[in-house]
Write a protein that binds this DNA or RNA. Structure first.
Lengths: 330, 330
DNA sequence: ATGAAAGCGCTAACAG
DNA sequence: CTGTTAGCGCTTTCAT
């Protein structure tokens, strides 16, 4: 006898009635409802989600695929989870590490768990996984692929980056180095555009020798910074803009290793705020994404979409630049 | 027609055979197997985990419940996930925030998803949820409840804390303040014991006035540190031991707010290493838990236990103390 | 070695 | 308003 049937027997009703009481109580007579609820309470019964999902062809579960689990992502995840909880959704979390195989596997598992919705930080490989995404409602978070039908939640990357670099030009810097992620990632492309925008505004030339591309991890930021700053003081950039959190940390490490002083020898502007940036001596000027809110919004958007809202939405939040002690005149 | 049946038709066999081919290929004739595999490949078919779990009364999914998602936990989670992936297990992640309600909800959801295994950072409320844990294999991570039958994976909290405090006494400190979590949490109790051990060894009295208890979050660490350090220099502790990561961050913030200098006015020893601790000026001396490994071990242990290993295991890893620039003679 | 059939726990017509 | 029935997609006896 299945579990539902046991409760039914206990309450002297049919299984269907128990099910109704639990899902659409208004369809059940007051008296019956109470008897059922008593039995449910007494046994601590909770319906099996798997069976329910299987039957309904839909699970109350959403997938969340992030590229990494650094402080930025942790905050994102919190935003999503808190919002999911409010909407009685469960979250299955995966980390793709920007790897094609891991992303594919994550999507497969999520499909087989019958998630209908998905929040995804897309990677360079997401386009290849189009088939796996068929029929799923997906919200692209932080980055965008440009694929049709995907909702997106991200910040004004281009203007935010421009604002950071503008801050540096205004301080009088003319040799401004920059470290971006891989250009085929939308955030990197947009932020690099912002960098060019700001240079152009002040009539500064775009100099490839001052630009490096990493993989968004600390190590690549460190390596890139070492290259840019390793030369003699004469040709070295006097300011550096790094376009994500981990690479900014890497740059800080490189600057230390080279014995340079911030902001004396180098002005440093980073991306994504954190306690590390704030407690650093001096505090690091950063573009501060509203990280938690990004997560919240992504989840809210997904909930709406799952609720029937057909229109594809594209959300863009502001990411203010916070000038702090790490940036000063050259 | 269900999906399995479609594949079956395509391959000209029965659904049962397709199922066998996928789960126990050795039971199927070479030729048949190939035909089935062709059909599977061609369609990109992947069995529905929900149906499988429902039938088998067991899902290939484990639960992971952490109390928060700070850098320490993020690393823990990574360790668990990487290991789970190797064992073809999916992970459903929850954050309990040390709240009774959220923990209960997490456990309920996990049960209804038919997880058989669970990795849990227990809270003060876990004992009340004993019924919800019935029949589940659980690995307690980081903390322990003392409940019977639970596997545990944690560090040598007592001796690690003692080592940190011993380092301070050896430097010549005699007024050593301390901030712990709530004493009913095993880690806090053990670390506070270690603190006493070290004091006793050097014949120093245990002075309640020098001790505060927080809730493991940054804010409480800050508040506690403000209390301990806010008085006149004469009575103020010359060293401070803080027993978790977030509260150590809070203490750093408090120290800054008070305008004290590290290690000039105060030696600070923290718990849990991170880039923040390392990049702080001066770098913070800390007890460094092998965080990633803790996660890995917990998951490995769970896999073993699920694999039939009956014996209850209790793992204790070493957590070395790393002396750095934040601790010096008074 | 393979197929037929039953059933995991639940929900949704469809009757009554 | 409530019970009966069928079936979601899969695995697993039990036959053959």
């Amino acid at each position: 006898m299945n579990r539902l049937a046991e409760i039914a027997k206990l309450a002297g009703v049919s299984a269907a009635t128990v099910s109704r009481t639990l899902t659409r109580p208004e369809m059940v007579a007051e008296r019956t409802r109470r008897r059922v609820m008593n039995a449910v309470q007494a046994t601590g019964f909770r319906p099996n989600e798997l069976a329910r999902s299987l039957k309904q062809q839909d699970s109350r579960t959403i997938g969340l695929v992030v590229t990494d689990l650094n402080p930025f992502h942790a905050t994102l995840v919190k935003g999503v989870q808190d919002t999911a909880e409010q909407n009685e959704l469960n979250v299955i979390l995966f980390t793709s590490d920007d790897s094609e195989a891991r992303e594919r596997e994550a999507l497969r598992v999520l499909r087989s768990h019958m998630v209908q919705g998905l929040i995804l930080i897309p990677t360079a490989h997401t386009r290849q996984h189009q088939t796996l995404l068929q029929g799923l409602t997906v919200v692209e978070l932080d980055r965008e692929t440009g694929m049709e039908g995907m909702h997106t939640v991200q910040v004004q990357n281009r203007s935010a980056a421009a604002e950071a670099v503008r801050h540096l030009t205004r301080l009088g810097h003319t040799r401004i180095g920059a470290i971006f992620g891989q250009l085929h990632v939308s955030t990197a492309a947009a932020r690099s555009q912002g960098y060019r925008d700001a240079l152009e505004e002040s009539g500064l030339p775009y100099d490839e020798a001052l630009v490096r591309y990493g993989n968004d991890l600390e190590g690549s930021g460190r390596a890139a910074a070492l290259e840019l700053l390793g030369g003699p003081a004469s040709g070295r950039p006097t300011a550096l803009f790094v376009s994500n959190h981990e690479m900014t940390v890497g740059a800080i490490i490189a600057v230390r290793a080279l014995g340079l002083r911030i902001p004396g020898d180098l002005s440093l502007a980073g991306f994504d705020d954190s306690r590390l940036m704030l407690l650093h001596e001096p505090p690091i000027s950063v573009v501060a994404q509203p990280t938690y809110e990004l997560g919240v919004r992504a989840c809210e958007l997904l909930v709406q979409a799952l609720g029937g809202q057909r229109e594809v939405q594209h959300l863009r939040l502001e990411a203010p630049f916070l000038p702090r002690g790490s940036t000063a005149p050259p």
